[in-house]
Simulated scan of single mutants.
Amino acid sequence: MEIAVIGAGAMGGAIAKRLVENGVSVLTYLEGRSAVTIERAKRAGMQPADLDAVAGAGLILSIVPPATAIAVAEQTAAAIRRRGLKTTFMDCNAISPQTMKQVAEIFGSDCGTVLDGSIIGGPPKAGQKGPKLYVCGDAGDSSAVLAEHGLQVRRIDGPIGAASALKMCYAGINKGVTGLGTAMLLAAIRSGADAALKRELQESLPDLDAKLASAIPDMYPKAYRWVAEMEEISEFLGEDDPAALIFKGMAGLYRKMAEDREHGGLLAEQLDKLNNGGR
């Protein structure tokens, strides 16, 4: 069975590599991608193919930034219709249940089966199990092939949107804490309370302090992708939930951190200095 992975980023490339290591032929679509991404796909053992060839795979995984999930679904559905085939498309992106339902509507009933997937955890690494791939809407057990070839798959009972809801809730807590810590540490730096705050965190909330010291630097290269993810969480919560405003603010914070990275990383440098004890 051929599996296609659209998205050869850090996560998509690592998942593809795990499948290849377990005997799967993995296609990918690389048109318009950077030289770094093309090289990553090559190292993972992915086979470049045009979109029509990708559409012929028995299972297609979409693992792309949330802002491009709809565009990828539209391109893939169009290719499937051109070929007159039916296949299984699993959206594994950090999107809201509302956006996931839009994805399902794009494919309709004439393209095959649409599965709602979400990935929790970091990219697979040698000697480690890797992330958990949650999936719902899989009455035909199409995801079983992934579990048979090296990935952790967990089924969720529920309609399309349940796996996406899980991702929104988990990411809202995990990345929300990172964003909250980033915002308040930067505020402490601006106001001269940074050393005192750091000491208090170490003394009264050591577990949180350790998490932030690790999670904040890890966030810098990913901040640009987290903007849309925070916006998806805000949409998931809905206008009637005051907490939706929190995640609109988080989107703005991560946008600021992405821009900081593009312009020399002054804020990141200040945060790193604080977390490294002023060194």
Results as ranks from 00 to 15, higher is better:
25 S>Q: 15
77 A>N: 05
158 G>V: 07
272 D>Y: 01
259 E>W: 04
32 G>P: 09
94 A>W: 00
267 L>G: 04
18 R>V: 10
194 D>T: 04
123 P>C: 07
206 P>H: 09
246 I>H: 09
14 A>I: 04
142 S>M: 12
101 K>E: 10
126 A>W: 02
167 K>R: 10
164 S>D: 04
122 G>V: 09
139 A>H: 14
17 K>D: 13
85 L>D: 14
184 M>P: 01
255 R>S: 07
192 G>V: 11
185 L>K: 00
249 G>K: 13
239 E>S: 15
39 E>Q: 12
224 Y>M: 13
223 A>C: 10
165 A>Q: 01
34 S>I: 08
202 Q>S: 14
64 V>W: 12
185 L>G: 02
15 I>C: 08
161 G>K: 02
220 Y>Q: 12
133 L>K: 02
55 A>M: 04
120 I>P: 01
68 T>R: 10
189 I>R: 11
5 V>E: 00
131 P>C: 08
236 F>C: 13
154 R>Q: 15
148 E>P: 00
173 I>A: 12
137 G>C: 05
124 P>N: 10
116 D>W: 03
118 S>R: 01
174 N>I: 13
103 V>D: 02
201 L>C: 09
198 K>V: 12
103 V>R: 04
255 R>Y: 02
165 A>G: 10
60 I>G: 01
264 G>N: 06
167 K>C: 10
132 K>N: 13
126 A>F: 06
63 I>P: 00
58 G>H: 09
32 G>M: 09
34 S>L: 09
232 E>T: 05
120 I>G: 02
217 P>G: 05
43 R>N: 13
247 F>Q: 08
4 A>I: 10
235 E>R: 15
35 A>F: 07
31 E>K: 14
65 P>F: 06
221 P>K: 00
50 D>H: 06
239 E>G: 05
94 A>R: 03
124 P>K: 12
157 D>Y: 06
55 A>G: 06
34 S>Q: 07
277 G>Q: 12
258 A>T: 00
38 I>Y: 01
252 G>V: 00
17 K>I: 07
175 K>D: 08
252 G>S: 06
250 M>Q: 15
205 L>G: 00
254 Y>K: 01
173 I>E: 12
198 K>G: 07
164 S>V: 02
56 G>Y: 01
10 A>H: 13
189 I>N: 05
146 L>K: 02
42 K>Y: 08
39 E>D: 14
115 L>A: 06
106 I>H: 02
278 G>F: 09
1 M>Q: 10
87 T>Y: 03
203 E>K: 15
46 M>R: 01
76 T>I: 13
2 E>C: 03
102 Q>L: 13
86 K>I: 07
78 A>D: 15
41 A>P: 07
21 E>K: 14
69 A>N: 12
122 G>M: 12
119 I>A: 04
17 K>H: 15
179 G>S: 06
168 M>Y: 03
49 A>Q: 08
149 H>Q: 06
31 E>S: 15
178 T>V: 11
254 Y>A: 01
77 A>E: 10
252 G>I: 08
129 K>R: 14
116 D>L: 11
175 K>L: 09
89 F>K: 03
121 G>I: 10
246 I>R: 04
